[in-house]
Nucleic acid binder design. Sequence first.
DNA 1: CATGCAGTTGATTGATCGTTCAACTAAGCA
DNA 2: TGCTTAGTTGAACGATCAATCAACTGCATG
Lengths: 218, 218
Amino acid sequence: MKLRPDNTRDRLIDTAMELFHSQGYQATGVAQILKKAEVNSGSLYYFFPTKEDLLLAVLEKYKLMLHPALLEPIWSRIDDPIEKVFGLLDGYRRLLMMTECNYGCPIGNLALEIGHSHAKARQLLADNFKGWRDAVHECLNAADDRLPSDVDRAQLASFVLTVMEGAVMQARTERSLKPFDDAVTQLRDYFDRLTADGTQWGAPAASELKPRTNTDKE
Amino acid sequence: MKLRPDNTRDRLIDTAMELFHSQGYQATGVAQILKKAEVNSGSLYYFFPTKEDLLLAVLEKYKLMLHPALLEPIWSRIDDPIEKVFGLLDGYRRLLMMTECNYGCPIGNLALEIGHSHAKARQLLADNFKGWRDAVHECLNAADDRLPSDVDRAQLASFVLTVMEGAVMQARTERSLKPFDDAVTQLRDYFDRLTADGTQWGAPAASELKPRTNTDKE
DNA sequence: CATGCAGTTGATTGATCGTTCAACTAAGCA
DNA sequence: TGCTTAGTTGAACGATCAATCAACTGCATG
């Protein structure tokens, strides 16, 4: 968690990660990165031939950070595999809340901005998505007996990512947590119906669709 | 559908709309717009004081086009209100397919790129989202008797938009229709469970989760 | 002390950015 | 005919962009 690495290369990556996240890739000038990281242009280009190479390094770091920085704190706090998934969603909610709905998912932001051309960057973005989906997929596998057997786990995991990204996008645009919370409530309802179908032998019951205070303490 | 309006102002808006959609706002230079629209810089700045004002005009046009250009062709083709919603999703699928997963939802793209600052633009993006959600909301109201009474229609409509935007984002990043189709399949399953619960008196049945050939002729 | 190399410096480059403006044209009207 | 006004022209502006590079520093090796 060191805020200012003595290593120039790492400091550039960390600074770029933050600026790309808050402003986007294009909107962040190399000069701004240099100033904030307190590095001279020559040093940057010693480590990274182009600005895009710096972006690639940032995306590589996101890949490396997925498990230790994003998942592990949640995984260790929550045992139930399905609640892990919703705990993960709550993590993004916290990020939105802390930044007044300004920061979203860094991967999602860059995905729509970089999407075209930049083949290597897009591949890394896809890798990051895959890591996220795989993590959710494992949770679903761990809850195998509670889900209907005919539900494709990988497909459902992808759906969770879809909902998360779409929810963050709407929340940022509306500058409100409501679209995010609404999406999570609907996803929760869907899971309730799936698990009711998966375990029981009778009626759906649907868990009454109570709002589920996603808001406070886990 | 005139491809080259004689009106300079409209030609600028149309050209900017296309370029902003395919490349993004920041990545599109004024010079590029001028060249493609065959307009001189002075004329552009006669109609639009800044580049951002041109963006606002583009977003206004999207608002105006929502019903006549996006919804109406689908609404007139499909009667069933719930199938209208999935017809709308299929429209975006067609766009992805036609452009080899390069073009996504223009509003969603700009939402993540412009999100910060640019207060007026963000409001217009929110307006566009609202128009979309309201259209789906009306469909759900029209299918009122088939949905469980305790399901919030507005919330469900917002969820559909969430799923659409997230699905398009993933499809563009993976350069594949699969994430999109997976999301639609899951959403379809959710609707099946909702309508089963809303109309029936007994078990869920869940419609077997058959893949639903979303692919070809409606 | 000498040599070599990893890393740093920052002024400078040419391209491109969004924007300006004085001069000009064409159409409408009196 | 002369005056007005909406619209057009395109060279030019300063700022900023990503990127360059010859000169330099500090340290480890022999």
